[in-house]
């Protein structure tokens, strides 16, 4: 076996070993395990709910409206007689479409803004950061209410809106780590050999800030679900007749006193999802911090 083969094998091994060590550590954390199982369950459900639901979630049955949980309808029926159990299972799709896409958008935008402002600093940085400050002075939901009530709503609008709202938040995080990296000598060394700014930002600095970006992504995903569901609840997101959880809770609210199961089950479902995502995010954060 040649020296080169040997070293490339050891290189692979070392990379695998590191990945395995990180993952092994994650697996040893109970909160990660619980969170991951729940998240995976909801993702599988979001994709394959057609195969999982006992009844068509949109099938109306006015005669069986507002029934409590029975053997036929495990979670009862809603005001149109639709099966709450089926609707709860089908309700994860919309939020699991919106949240990851919005997160991706926000992370991408925030990474670009954070890299550029952090790397260049100076007047542009000061200006952008003031804008970010001003932007952050508005509670997220208020911006969403303002914009969506004016522009009208669609799934795409909600994704873009959450993505745009996340951009300044993410950019702040990225900027703060870029500020630290920028002053390290490897960047000075790159400049001394005549590298361009773009190369330094993308090839030298970016790989060194991936850890905080990953952590931020998982945290943002939790917030994205939070926000998307809240917008649905305020009737500013997904529209009828979607089985979306936030929307269902919003509409079923008026039956709260006679048929609390209509809102209770989607609420619990949503709660498990957001808590699970945050459990995973928190575990990743802890492992990455070491």
């Amino acid at each position: 076996m040649s020296a080169l083969e040997l070293s490339s094998r050891s290189r692979l091994d070392s990379r695998r070993a590191r990945a395995r060590a990180t993952f092994g550590q994650l697996l040893r954390s109970a909160s990660f395990d619980v969170g991951a199982v729940i998240v995976v369950f909801w993702i599988v459900d979001a994709i394959f709910w057609h195969a999982l639901v006992p009844q068509d979630p949109q099938a109306l049955n006015p005669l069986a409206a507002l029934q409590g949980p029975t053997a036929a309808h495990w979670f009862g029926t809603d005001w149109l007689g639709r099966d709450v159990f089926s609707r709860t299972l089908a309700g994860s799709t919309s939020v699991l479409e919106i949240a990851p896409l919005a997160t991706l958008l926000g992370i991408a935008g925030g990474t670009v803004v954070g890299l550029v402002t952090g790397y260049y600093g100076g007047a542009v940085d000061a200006l952008v950061m003031r804008l970010v400050d001003a932007f952050l002075a508005f509670p997220l939901v208020i911006i969403a209410v303002l914009v969506l009530s004016l522009l009208g709503t669609s799934e795409i609008t909600v994704i873009v809106l959450i993505g745009v709202i996340f951009t300044p938040v993410v950019s702040r995080t990225v900027r703060s780590v870029v500020l630290v990296e920028r002053d390290k000598e490897y960047v000075a060394s790159a400049r001394l050999r005549g590298e361009g700014d773009w190369y330094i930002m993308t090839a030298e600095i970016l790989p060194n800030v991936t850890t905080p970006i990953i952590v931020e992504s998982t945290v943002r995903l939790g917030y994205a679900i939070f926000t998307a569901a809240t917008l649905s609840f305020l009737s500013l997101g997904i529209q009828q007749p979607s089985p979306d959880w936030g929307l269902t809770i919003s509409l079923g609210r008026q039956y709260l006193q006679i048929a609390p199961w209509i809102v209770l089950f989607p609420a619990v479902a949503l709660a498990t999802l957001v808590v699970a995502v945050n459990l995973v995010a928190d575990s990743i954060q802890q492992v990455m911090a070491q």
């Binding site: 290189r11 390290k184 000598e185 490897y186 000075a188 060394s189 790159a190 001394l192 050999r193 005549g194 030298e204 790989p207 060194n208």
Partner: peptide, 25 residues
Amino acid sequence: SRRERASFLQMVFQNPDTALNAKFR
């Protein structure tokens, strides 16, 4: 040029931990 200057003069820093990009072999 910048490149001529770069090949003429180089620098070695105090702390090799931060002077080498940790993500590059």
